[in-house]
Write a protein that binds this DNA or RNA. Structure first.
Lengths: 321, 321
DNA sequence: TTGTCTCCCAGGGGGAGACAA
DNA sequence: TTGTCTCCCCCTGGGAGACAA
């Protein structure tokens, strides 16, 4: 069937191991999102995580959830691994993080220099455009903003009349899409024609969703420039759907129990972070957390003592700011 | 967009409370599936439940899961509620069950007569047909097996030439679909033409999936007969997709922790049963379980004593048979 | 009885510039 | 600069019987 076949080109060797392009992930996640660096220490907030899961399952966090006395309101972990993914159905980006709870002794270690903030690599040559009614209509293609086309697309040969080329772009699942890029009309403008409507219906895009285009350099390969594409869905009022696998209560319990079990046994646990689903982060770099708690710069040595002296106070709601 | 609009008729007042037609649910679930009766006592098998969730999340049950010493391998519960549902995306049927763990005293109560087996109501006037390549091709409609059309569809007026009518059917989400039903061709046969291709693309049906048609009588309403329709998807090798909400480990932990917590606090918990996803049931009528354990009929009074004397033996694997 | 093919033809929609915001 | 409209025409795909499994 047309819609279940994905893309027109060769299928990507899809594997969950395959980590998608970091710049593309950030371009789709939005400029406000940054992920903690692998190897650094982070603070994990079970309640913030609960709120994301509750928001995703359209469920209020209620009182049916048992208390986990072993589970503190924030858990200091080492970030063992971060992988970037995109939902198979919706292309929405999310991150999978492996968190290793730290023993009190490990927590007392001084900061590594790298923990003081290497921001995630933000994309440079990219654009996004919110799709108009004309972009998603059955008549005609996608109107590319002029600056975007000039910055991100390969340059057209203006000696041709009209100037046109075939664009090949790969999406978040590494599937190839082809578009005819033409510069025509009166006045002249950049358009994507052939291939665009297939993309719109395959991705089920509607006016209000956004198209993300990104130019990346793979210097280590022979292929120099590569065009990537992604989407940002409009925040629709009712995107959430019932799970049909596990009750939302069990999910919320599972989240807490998994963290509590990992903390008790000093073993790794895994969380999914969906930057566009939840209003608040729940995995924060420890350095950022410490700064936020004290609102001031203090010497490295004293941070931890003060942190633990104050952790019973109001800092618990940090993630919700 | 065409594919996100569902059906052509009025949207149903969709609510999760709304329980779909029991006969339609069973027609889609298949003849082997029957659900325990509300109010009766059932046996819940955490391990069988784990296997379903693991199968759904494409995850093997491994050793990362902590033991729950409070949680027995089977839990005797009263079935507080059963509601039948269909997945919003795929139309696959599943059941939501509320289970109330029973105290040892409650377990000792004698059987109620109704517990000795009222089977779920199986559909009578229904048919299903596995879709052929022609059924799902872009050229032409759906070839209705003759007996099916005669049994389930309203009779055609054969004085017309050709005999034809408009069929109105409601799907698992109570959304209305319209089809032109015509009897034509040489030799004559029943066909669904106009409306069929919209249905195929909206439900994303492919050859190998099955169409389910059902005629029901609503005697309590004025409308006498109603046509319902459903889908059985072909079991595809790779239907499962990563969750992006909660790690499969956390889900498996959550399932066990929720059951253990419910058993400890004597409170209700909720499970989803997907009859087509898992190879084994994990909520069994207590009467059926007792019969299976003893392979023989014994008097009502002695059942429970013997049950508890033997429960440490091999009955644990009952659900996987 | 029904799955597949081919043929026919109408309508949907892609691709173009016009025009205005 | 770019969103929407309309127009034109091609080609996809609904709908029919033929034919054979």
């Amino acid at each position: 069937m047309k819609l279940s076949s994905s893309g027109q080109g060769q299928q990507a060797h899809e594997g969950e191991n395959k980590c998608l392009n970091s710049e593309l992930w950030h371009a789709c996640a939005g400029p406000m999102v940054c992920l903690p660096t692998v190897g650094t220490r982070v603070v994990y907030f079970p309640q913030g995580h609960s709120e994301q899961v509750a928001a995703t399952t359209n469920k209020e966090v209620d009182t049916h959830i048992p208390n986990y006395p072993d589970l503190p309101p924030q858990l200091i972990c080492q970030l063992q691994n971060v992988t970037m993914h995109a939902d198979v159905e919706t292309d929405e980006v999310y991150a999978q993080m492996s968190l290793q709870p730290l023993t009190p002794e490990e927590q007392k270690d001084t900061f590594l220099p790298m923990e003081l903030g290497i921001p995630s690599k933000q994309p440079t040559n990219y654009f996004y455009k919110t799709l108009t009614a004309s972009d998603t209509s059955t008549h005609g293609g996608f109107s590319v903003p002029r600056r975007a086309a000039e910055k991100v697309f390969p340059p057209l040969d203006f000696s041709q009349q009209p100037p046109a080329q075939e664009l090949i772009a790969r999406d978040l699942h590494d599937i190839e899409w082809k578009f005819r890029h033409i510069f025509r009309g009166q006045p002249k403008r950049h358009l994507l024609t052939t291939g665009w409507s297939v993309f719109v219906s395959a991705k089920r895009l509607v006016a209000g969703d956004s198209f993300v285009g990104l130019l990346v350099n793979f210097c280590h390969r022979n292929e120099k420039n590569q065009l990537l594409l992604g989407i940002r869905r409009a925040t629709r009022p009712q995107t959430v759907m019932p799970s049909s696998v596990l009750s939302s209560d069990s999910m919320l319990i599972g989240l807490l129990a998994a963290a509590a079990h990992a903390a008790a046994t000093n073993s790794c646990f895994t969380v999914f972070y969906n930057p566009r689903a939840s209003p608040s982060d729940f995995v924060i770099p420890l350095s950022k957390y410490v700064k936020a708690v004290f609102h001031t710069r203090v010497s490295v040595g004293m941070r931890f003592r003060m942190l633990f002296e104050t952790e019973e106070s109001s800092v618990r709601r940090y993630y919700s700011s």
